[in-house]
Design a protein around this nucleic acid. Sequence first.
DNA 1: TTTATTATTGAAAAAGATTATCATTATCAG
DNA 2: CTGATAATGATAATCTTTTTCAATAATAAA
Lengths: 145, 145
Amino acid sequence: MEINERTAHWTQTLQVSGYRLTAARLSVVNVIAASQKALNPMDAYLLARQECPGLGLVTVYRTLEKLEELGLVVRVHAPDGCGAYLSAAEGHEHLIICTHCQRAEYFAGDDLHPLMDRVAAEHGYQIQDHWLQLFGICPECRENS
Amino acid sequence: MEINERTAHWTQTLQVSGYRLTAARLSVVNVIAASQKALNPMDAYLLARQECPGLGLVTVYRTLEKLEELGLVVRVHAPDGCGAYLSAAEGHEHLIICTHCQRAEYFAGDDLHPLMDRVAAEHGYQIQDHWLQLFGICPECRENS
DNA sequence: TTTATTATTGAAAAAGATTATCATTATCAG
DNA sequence: CTGATAATGATAATCTTTTTCAATAATAAA
């Protein structure tokens, strides 16, 4: 999705959901929607402050919470931290994350449902969700090292 | 692996690695090695205190850190928390975790290497690691609800 | 066994990250 | 414009994890 399209979608969703469009909130929306990298609250705070100088870190936390609740962003879990956020995928996709710079991309994987059904049957679990994530070094970071 | 076999293996590995075998450390080893569930430091602390009453929470953190460094336990990441530890699998396997009770089991999945190679090629990432985790309700928790 | 070395311990404090409180401000419907 | 109130940012409070440090206990050497 185009960045402008994404920010438009997010602001509209916020508005439709009864949330107000404030300068602080929009600065966080812009930063996250435009980022190719998973950002933690402090990252997002430092970037968004360039657009909204008075911004408080607490507002970043609150905005991320709302965006997640609306399904617009997802929290990214990685070996070195679990507090970063990324624009949500369209449809369910899997993630590949750069362990150097947190650049993340979605990919459409194999259909895991046969596997999930098999494991569910063999172990007796009722499966609710799954994660498939790859970790590695992105092309850009490979060059810079 | 049998629990006794596992604790023997862990204590031996600790010793061979130059670590001392203390009552506090062994109580944590016993608790984690015997647990079917992923335990966070506080869980492990409360259980291990039954065997070693004077135990301090800090020692649990330190012991888990060493066990992880030796590859004997792994840190489990889940939507509701990323600080729990589980006995490591023998060989690389994937995880299925109960979102109610943290019971976790390993399973041998499909070979993901073809997928990983494809994604690596398409996105230009040099892949280092991957996670495949399923989340659901274990048989026991299903009965109790 | 006894002793010396030093890794380990637990308590307390510190640091970091996240959440709650609250008076002030700003958005938006009317 | 104006009023209702959602949202803000500063501060404080929580919670988790790490650091510090003197006392203790495990191990190797005598």
